[in-house]
Design a binder for these strands. Structure first.
Length: 760
RNA sequence: GGGGCCGUGGUCUAGAUGGUUAUGACGUUGCCUUGACAUGGCAAAGGUCCCCGGUUCAAAUCCGGGCGGCCCCACCA
């Protein structure tokens, strides 16, 4: 017996910060210096938005569990931190905060404002992540807006440009009026809402009319044809005739096309440039005259006639009113509609044709499908999200954005020779640079546009592996070990990363892809401002500790399922953290027995046998990166069997100094601490270092003990519970003596059971 | 319209390859300061495992159909 090295009666959460500080000081997670394979985690670079959702906190904690557990399985893991700093949200933030519009100030000045804001938000991310105990390489964070990173982004652009995989084209595309930029299909979401389907009369000269149904009357000014189905007898006599566009003086022809569904609306539809993708397709197919009546800010231009200057929504209501006045509106009915919106600003998407750069992707789908089969998905079923998206890619990727805070497009335009790319390996701020044309030596202006931010984030697996920076490191690391990410960005980050990596290397980007679900509230509802159910990580950490939050994140749901979270649940997990501490405190009361005794007591053999099963199951879980398995397996064993039954049985021998009991207590505790270390890094580190010295995180995962797993567990538990129950019925204390017979098949544990229950 | 996931006590949840009293948490009730732990321990109450049919000696677990929920995808104006 001795004073337990764990003097405090309770686990103090304030220890977490001290422990983290010492990890930082020792640079515990620096880039491995080994000669062979290095296991690189392609961390999702968080975007500094000023807030951190508790879902992100759980998400990154789980990714940390991947890094920690694989380190403890003997792999040299590098877990870098990246910060995703390019893109629109920061621009909107700055515009709001300073009450300006980006194009109203000098570009240089605007960029500086964005950078300052990003730095501020970034510090908050780092503070939160460190509070969570995340074991990233804190000395070498990369930033996607740094010149070093942008050199690589631009370098890969130039490489693909030179290969002929990037081209410029003017075609109607998704346009976000709020963000004033073209968007890729992957950046579009759909919002369901009610809208009016208006039945409008297109008059013929003879006073008859053809009715068409539309949800977008504001585009009448861009109408260039009416179509009806070829087999639709109702409109046969209209085909080939000219009808007058309501509210406008122009006439358009009635054509036939199978795209018109006789069962929808009136069966006749108008084609306008551009109401939706169908319009885009048919304008092209029928060679109609394009009229672009929408301005980039979402208002109508002169093509809108007297509605010029109005925003589409205003124009719509005004025109409906005018149609009604002129008796050109048959009726309006409410319909349910899926409206495409911008995934960032949630503005309604318009279709606008502007010259943009495109990266070829359709031609690579076949190869990417093959590549997908070479990667292991955790969980397996998430692979379907990727396959589904690839099956639906219908056009090339528009990659240029008419914004400011992004990687400048490294292209220069010669009036005579067109666009050309400079040498890679240098950072080009093209929008303010001029270079001589390589053909005619005339000064060329750089392009003013920037790249879609997915163009830079999608090369993270290449960047961190040292692509075009450190060939030796690249050989040790590529393809990277694992891509962890949320399911919501499969069609963007995952798909684009695979595409870009394949185009540049002809290889898969990752060995493993790990995809997690969302964190939702305790009833499975999405956390949102309007529901008032949002939780933030820092208050939770301060109240219950990072270990409690992390354990909750690991034990609540299987990999890929949504994780339910509430303060109640986190508090519940905190109890288990305390339990671990109490068990360690108990074991610490005895001198550490490091020498294995020649023979082990049957009770000790039994618990080690049970522990063997737990070790095997937990490690299988870690290999599959599913922390639900180790978290719950180890917790149940530790609490329900090891603490509740084994410790009580072995206690008397422990106090008597029995070496078999003491050795077993220590070895079992060590195994438990190691198995839990990736999930609850703080309490395990503290107790391990106090009892055994050093860090639990540099240990390797436990291996099975040399004992047979017995079938005694259920019988032992039943016997103990029976006696506890009897004592309760009799109203006597647990320490009181009782007469009872030990069943024959528990004879091997007779002495421990007799001592535990005070059998007479 | 297509696809995915799912439907287990008041609430939430576990349950490869079908097998005796269906797991755990939170909550509820009762007892207990037992030489780690009262922010604890022990015990107890509480379930038609969504419904119908099938396969089987045996189904929460497999198959078919239905009902319901969540999510993703999709150009029906």
């Amino acid at each position: 017996m001795r004073e337990s090295p764990l003097a405090d009666k309770r686990w103090k959460k304030s220890k977490e910060a001290e422990i983290f500080a010492s990890w930082l000081k020792e640079k515990s997670w620096a880039k491995p210096t080994v000669k062979n394979r290095i296991w690189v985690v392609d961390t999702p670079p968080p975007y500094p938005s000023g807030k951190i959702h508790i879902g992100s906190a759980i998400h990154y904690s789980q990714i940390d569990m991947i890094a920690r557990s694989w380190r403890m399985m003997g792999k040299p893991v590098w877990f870098p931190l990246g910060i995703d700093r390019n893109g629109l949200p920061i621009e909107s933030r700055v515009e709001k905060d300073h009450k300006i519009k980006a194009h109203q100030v000098e570009r240089e000045e605007f960029l500086e404002m964005c950078k300052k804001k990003l730095d501020e938000y970034e510090a908050y991310i780092i503070q939160t992540f460190q509070g969570l105990g995340i074991s990233m390489d804190w000395d070498a964070p990369y930033r996607t807006d740094s010149p070093e990173y942008r050199i690589i982004t631009q370098g890969t652009f130039i490489e693909l440009w030179n290969k002929g995989l990037i081209y410029e084209a003017k075609r109607p595309n998704n346009w976000c009026p709020g963000c004033r930029t073209t968007l890729a299909d992957a950046e579009i979401e759909y919002r369901s809402g009610k809208t009016k389907l208006n039945y409008i009369k297109f008059m013929l000269d003879d006073g008859t009319y053809i009715p068409i149904a539309t949800t977008r009357p504001e585009l009448l000014g861009a109408c260039d044809a009416i179509i009806v189905h070829p087999d639709d007898d109702r409109f046969k006599h209209f085909v080939g005739k000219k009808v007058k566009i309501p509210l406008y003086d122009r006439k358009v022809e009635v054509l036939t096309h199978p795209e018109a569904n006789p069962d929808f609306g009136t069966g006749a539809m108008m084609l306008c440039s551009y109401g939706d993708q169908t319009d885009v397709k048919l304008f092209n197919e029928l060679k109609l005259t394009e009229r672009l009546i929408l301005e980039p800010n979402g208002t109508l231009n002169d093509g809108g006639g007297k509605y010029a200057g109005m925003h589409t929504k205003k124009a719509r209501s005004q025109m409906i009113e005018d149609l009604e006045k002129n008796k050109l509106l048959e009726k309006s009915e409410e319909v349910e509609q899926q409206v495409p919106v911008c995934w960032r600003s949630k503005d309604d998407i318009e279709f606008v044709a502007l010259p943009e750069f495109y990266l070829k992707q359709q031609a690579f789908i076949k190869d990417l499908r093959k590549i997908s089969d070479e990667m292991e998905f955790h969980p397996q079923f998430m692979k379907q999200l990727l396959i589904d998206w690839m099956d639906r890619v219908s056009q090339d990727w528009p990659i240029s954005r008419r914004r400011f805070y992004g990687t400048p497009i490294p292209l220069f335009k010669c009036k005579e020779h067109g666009f050309w790319a400079p040498e890679s390996g240098k950072y080009y701020e093209s929008w303010k640079e001029e270079l001589p044309c390589p053909k005619c030596n005339k000064k060329c202006k750089g392009d003013h546009r920037v790249l879609d931010t997915w163009m830079d984030s999608s090369i993270s697996p290449l960047y961190i592996c040292g692509y075009k920076q450190d060939d030796a490191f690249f050989k040790q690391t590529f393809p990277s070990f694992v891509r962890p990410q949320g399911k919501d960005i499969v069609r963007t980050w995952l798909f684009y990363s695979l595409l870009r990596t394949f185009q540049l290397t002809k290889k898969r980007a990752f060995e493993h892809v790990w995809i997690s679900g969302h964190v939702v509230d305790e009833h499975g509802k999405k956390m949102s401002k309007s529901l008032g159910n949002i939780l933030y990580p820092m208050p939770m950490i301060e109240k219950y500790g990072a270990d409690a939050l992390r354990f909750q994140g690991a034990s609540e749901a299987k990999l890929g399922s949504d994780i339910r979270l509430s303060e109640e649940r986190v508090r519940g997990s905190g109890k288990f953290i305390q339990k671990i501490y109490n068990i360690a405190r108990f074991v610490g009361m005895f001198e550490v027995a490091t020498k294995k005794p020649a023979t082990l007591h049957n009770t000790d053999k039994w618990i080690l046998g049970e522990l063997n099963t737990v070790i095997k199951k937990a490690i299988t879980g870690y290999e599959d990166m599913d922390f639900f398995v180790p978290a719950n397996t180890v917790k149940n064993f530790t609490w329900e069997i090891f603490a509740a039954h084994y410790i009580e049985m072995a206690k008397t021998r422990a106090y008597a100094g029995d070496q078999s009991a003491l050795w077993t207590l220590n070895e079992a505790l060590k195994a438990i601490l190691k198995l839990l270390a990736p999930i609850t890094p703080f309490v395990t580190e503290y107790t391990w270092s106090k009892l055994y010295g050093g860090s639990v995180h540099t240990q390797v995962m436990p291996v099975a003990f040399d004992v047979q797993t017995t079938k005694d567990t259920q019988k032992l538990l039943a016997f103990n519970e029976k006696l506890w129950s009897i004592k309760q019925e009799k109203g006597i204390s647990l320490k009181d003596g009782i007469k009872a017979k030990i069943p024959g098949d528990l004879e091997a544990f007779a002495d421990d059971l007799a001592a535990m229950h005070h059998l007479e």
